[in-house]
Design a protein around this nucleic acid. Structure first.
Length: 832
RNA sequence: GGGCGGGUGGCGGAACUGGUAUACGCGCAGGACUUAAAAUCCUGUGGCCGUAAGGUCAUGAGGGUUCAAUUCCCUCCCCGCCCACCA
């Protein structure tokens, strides 16, 4: 009797209740038991889960359940990344409070996750917007403040006009806000930063330890941190006491420098142009450029604008006086904010030089085009070549010269070798309400005063109206702002900015180790046992942001002596996107499939199975309704197989359901003593293949196909199938936990729940066959097949192969030049 | 512009270390059951030629190495993602 939607609903809710009642997935540290920490990137609680969540968490759940069956002590927690702007936007729209809205969403989300049957330890569930959680954000901030790692500075920052808040560099994507896509502008503001740059070397070097991360994520982080070796070269300004320091990675081209360019924001600019005829024009240019949005200014193939300052600089290597320009293509934030321009060997300089008719000089000869002149160049030559016009360095390959010239300049005092990083400090202040208050008090007499430990948490006031306008909402709460200085007891005011929400998610994996501990951020013993996270799963979009910040926090905690490991995530899996009709499923595109609808029609197990079967976890997944139907069919088939065999304890289907007319044949249990060797081989093969699919990179799609093969073999065998069915149910358990539990119960096994039954093991000997099929090729083409005993001798193989009629046709009368045997697989005969 | 992935039937995707390409599923076609349909079950299913046996061509295109190439090498085309005036 095929089960129905109602049957499946009954089965799923029955087992969900069972797991809840028995707290089946509660984890407790057990120092003598091997642990496994599986974690998915926790969700923002929007209230409804989407297919991306379902995919992410299903992958994690299968891994968690598999490891449980393998005997690991598994920690698999869940929580909510609950601070952030959507709650504020919703509050404005619905005239509610962000807290009320968020907690309502969390409750909904919680129910949806339960309906998927995920094996979470619900006792550790947490929300970052709980004061008992964000209290520790403040604690961390103060620890950083104490060590000078959290500091406030005025600078030009990224500002999203739509969100009305500042953004970190990592949050600016193509010059636009990562959340709302509004073009980001620059603003001069005093803001809080975390000194992540102090950890730049460790963050870079330790990427090597992350062998089990996708290499592209490591590469993306490497590029983001952006270490480059080069030389800072000092150019004296002619007729002045000033010196311009430029940074270059191309010391080999120093003899080709024909001008110097400063960023418009460079502090020296105003001093240099003062009193020159060019002063007015220069200042106007600076005004114009700095008002331009950063994204516009940085967009690639733009005309390079700039002006001459009227001053000259002296190239230390040849004492040439070269003009000093200001150009919009030079960025103040990188290097020294000044460059030496070598138009012949740098495309950007080349374009600028053409635009402004500046001189050029070739210093690296193109081996493919040795006679070329400056006039004939159409673009910069940026490849390897031999140095010319470079004094005593002439005729050296430029790669070699790079090092030699750098050392020589350093010896001569012309410059010093240095390293520059692309990574900037992390701007964490946000002018928003729904986040962790930054625990700082401003006192006229004492300055920035940290909130004393025992006063934590600094709680978010509830009486703030959220309007979405007019700066930090907290500034409008007098009760919040007005306070007394902890040092001198005089009236003072609180910081009204809140922390970026990425702060919250940078350490939640540690909190999960002791989620209910209110005396400490986490228990050192618990963290030592559970950490690091063995398997982390989430989207590639966090390749830089969240993963880099989490690594930074982990290193900081290690320096505090709280933990001993220096990397938080041993193994990372970045799951692919869910597409529909070739496009990413998203609300804005309106092409989403609601997991709830699928759930109410097919149940969680079918959804889980389909999602895992349709594509390897890292690849994109194309949604397909008939594929879903196929998964339903497969589960149904297996269920009937078990039901037929073990009858009685079946969920009673509603009477309205028309039952199949075929009578169920009840066979007495325990009658089998000699399993069919073919089926036994298939059974062992399935265990081996499914286990391998897990161990070799979580190829769930092939794992499922192997289970299907076993199901097909059971169907074919008809009798003596008990052992094979049992194996199939066990293999299915991590994937489709509810149906597996139900089938397990029908089979009346001793373990009450299959979730903690042992993962099956295979017998290598059972995989052997008495007869194997070998393909026979003649001149590279398969012409026949022969059945032989394993490891048959060559002579025998030769005889048998040539006796095959198909082979004989091509090889019989010909002279055999070669006879190649791939043991137990293939024979290749080469004839003249 | 730079970097990293990819390109296999009508579709999602398999293929160990170079060893019988297309596992498994979807879809499709035919059949069984049914008054009929749904569901279920059985059979077939890369293209071309052939009644068949069989032959032949196929893993983005072209070349190479090899007894043997989806896999290794060279040239090129296309798609996706990330970074991008970083000196």
């Amino acid at each position: 009797m095929p089960y129905t939607t109602n049957d499946i609903k009954a089965i799923e809710s029955k087992w969900q209740k069972y797991w809840e009642k028995h707290r089946s997935f509660r984890a407790a540290a057990a120092p003598n038991k091997p642990k496994y920490y599986v974690l998915e990137m926790f969700p923002y609680p929007s209230g409804k889960i989407h297919m991306g969540h379902v995919r992410n968490y299903t992958i994690a759940d299968v891994i968690a359940r598999y490891k449980m069956m393998q005997g690991f002590n598994v920690l698999h927690p869940i929580g909510y990344d609950a601070f952030g702007q959507p709650a504020e936007n919703a509050a404005i729209k619905n005239k509610t409070n962000p807290a009320d809205w968020t907690y309502k969403c969390i409750a909904q989300m919680h129910d949806e996750l339960k309906k998927m049957g995920f094996s979470y330890d619900w006792d550790r569930e947490l929300s970052t917007c709980d004061a008992e959680y964000y209290k520790w954000n403040q604690w961390i901030f103060l620890k950083m403040f104490e060590r000078g790692l959290a500091y406030k500075k005025a600078s030009s920052v990224n500002w999203c006009p739509d969100c009305e808040t500042t953004l970190a560099n990592e949050e600016v994507i193509n010059g636009a806000c990562w959340r709302c896509k509004t073009v980001v502008v620059q603003k001069d503001l005093e803001q809080w930063y975390l000194k992540i740059t102090q950890y730049a070397p460790a963050l870079l070097d330790d990427l090597q330890k992350l062998e089990q991360w996708p290499s592209r994520v490591r590469l993306m982080q490497e590029n983001w941190i952006g270490k480059s070796y080069g030389v800072e070269i000092y150019f004296k300004v002619k007729d002045s006491k000033e010196t311009i320091s430029v940074f270059t990675t191309r010391a080999d081209t120093i003899f080709g420098a024909t001008y110097v360019v400063l960023a418009p924001e460079h502090p020296l600019v105003k001093k240099l142009v003062a009193g020159t005829p060019q002063a007015k024009e220069t200042l106007a240019f600076i005004e114009k450029t700095t008002n331009k949005s950063k994204s516009l200014r940085m967009s690639g193939d733009q005309r390079k604008e700039g002006v001459f300052t009227g001053r000259h600089a002296v190239n230390p290597v040849n004492n040439e006086a070269i003009p000093i320009y200001i150009g919009d293509y030079v960025l103040m934030e990188y290097g020294t904010g000044a460059i030496m321009a070598v138009p012949t060997h740098d495309q950007r300089d080349f374009e600028f030089a053409k635009e402004h008719k500046l001189p050029m000089r070739i210093v690296i000869q193109d081996p493919k085009n040795p006679g070329i002149t400056v006039e004939k160049m159409t673009k910069a030559f940026e490849e390897e070549g031999i140095l010319v016009n470079s004094g005593s360095f002439d005729q050296t390959p430029n790669v070699e010269a790079k090092k030699n010239i750098a050392e020589w300049m350093q010896d001569q005092g012309f410059g010093k070798m240095s390293v520059h990083w692309r990574l900037r400090d992390w701007l964490i202040s946000r002018q928003r309400y729904w986040g962790t208050p930054i625990p700082i008090i401003y006192c006229e007499a004492c300055g920035q005063v940290p909130v004393p430990w025992r006063q934590l948490p600094v709680e978010l006031p509830k009486d703030v109206e959220i309007t979405g306008e007019g700066g930090s909402p907290l500034a409008r709460s007098r009760g919040f702002v007005e306070c007394t200085c902890p040092k001198c007891n005089k009236p003072a005011r609180r910081e009204t900015d809140t922390m970026a929400t990425f702060f919250d998610s940078s350490w939640y994996f540690l909190r999960f180790c002791s989620a209910r501990n209110n005396d400490e951020i986490f228990d050192a013993k618990d963290a030592a046992y559970w950490m690091p996270v063995d398997q982390y799963i989430g989207g590639i979009e966090h390749a830089i942001l969240h993963l880099l910040y989490s690594r930074f926090f982990t290193k900081f905690f290690k320096d505090l002596g709280l933990i001993t490991m220096d990397e938080p995530f041993v193994r990372l899996l970045t799951q692919g996107m869910v597409l529909k009709e070739g496009e990413v499923m998203s609300k804005s595109r309106g092409n989403t499939v609601d997991p709830d609808e699928v759930l109410s029609r097919y149940g969680a197990d079918t959804l889980r199975l389909f999602i895992l079967f349709a594509a390897p976890p890292e690849d994109q997944l194309e949604w397909n309704d008939s594929g879903l139907e196929g998964s339903w069919r497969f589960l149904n088939r297996v269920y009937q197989m078990v039901e037929k065999r073990y009858s009685s304890t079946v969920i009673q289907a509603p009477s309205s359901v028309i039952r199949s007319s075929t009578p169920v044949i009840l066979s007495p249990k325990g009658e089998e003593s000699h399993p069919d060797p073919t089926l036994e081989r298939e059974r062992n093969k399935a265990i081996k293949s499914v286990t391998q699919s897990f161990e070799e990179g979580y190829k769930f799609n092939t794992a499922i196909s192997h289970m299907m093969v076993l199901a097909n073999a059971i169907d074919k065998a008809k009798t003596n199938v008990d052992a094979a069915i049992e194996t199939l149910v066990l293999l299915l358990a991590p994937f489709v936990p509810h149906v597996a539990e139900e089938m397990w119960q029908m089979m009346e096994k001793t373990e009450a729940s299959i979730a903690h039954a042992a993962w099956p093991v295979f017998d290598e000997a059972a995989l052997k066959t008495a007869v194997i099929t070998m393909a026979v090729q003649v001149n590279g083409k398969v012409r026949g097949q022969i059945q032989v005993a394993p490891d048959t001798a060559q002579d025998e193989l030769r005889k048998l192969a040539l006796a095959d009629p198909g082979v004989a046709k091509y090889a019989q009368d010909a002279a055999i030049k070669k006879f190649i045997v791939v043991p137990n697989k293939l024979i290749s005969i080469v004839v003249a």
